Amino acid sequence: MPAPIAPVRTLGRRLREARQAKGMTQAELGAVLGLEDENSAAPRISRYERGDRMPDEETMEALAEALDLPVAYFHATSDVLADAILLIARLPMSKQREVLSKLREWAASSKK
Rank of each mutant, 00 (worst) to 15 (best):
M1K: 15
P2Y: 08
I5D: 08
A6Q: 10
P7K: 03
V8K: 10
V8F: 03
V8G: 02
L11I: 05
L11M: 12
L11Y: 00
G12S: 07
G12H: 11
R14C: 00
L15K: 04
R16Y: 11
E17R: 14
A18C: 13
A18K: 11
R19K: 04
R19S: 06
Q20D: 11
K22C: 12
K22M: 01
Q26M: 10
A31N: 06
A31R: 11
V32T: 14
V32H: 15
V32F: 15
V32K: 13
G34N: 05
G34H: 10
E36N: 11
E36H: 08
N39V: 09
N39R: 12
S40Y: 11
S40A: 05
A41D: 00
A42Q: 03
A42Y: 07
P43Y: 00
R47F: 10
G51H: 00
D52W: 12
D52H: 08
M54F: 14
E57K: 15
T59C: 06
T59Y: 05
A62H: 12
A62C: 03
L63S: 00
A64N: 06
A64V: 01
E65N: 10
A66E: 04
L69F: 13
P70N: 00
P70L: 01
Y73M: 00
F74M: 03
F74C: 08
A76I: 03
A76S: 13
T77I: 15
D79H: 04
D79S: 02
D83S: 01
A84G: 01
I85H: 04
L86M: 02
L87N: 11
L87H: 09
A89P: 05
P92D: 10
M93F: 15
S94D: 10
Q96E: 05
R97G: 04
E98Q: 08
V99D: 03
L100K: 12
S101V: 14
S101N: 10
K102T: 14
K102H: 12
L103W: 05
L103C: 13
E105C: 10
A107H: 15
A108P: 02
S110P: 13
K111A: 08
K112Y: 07
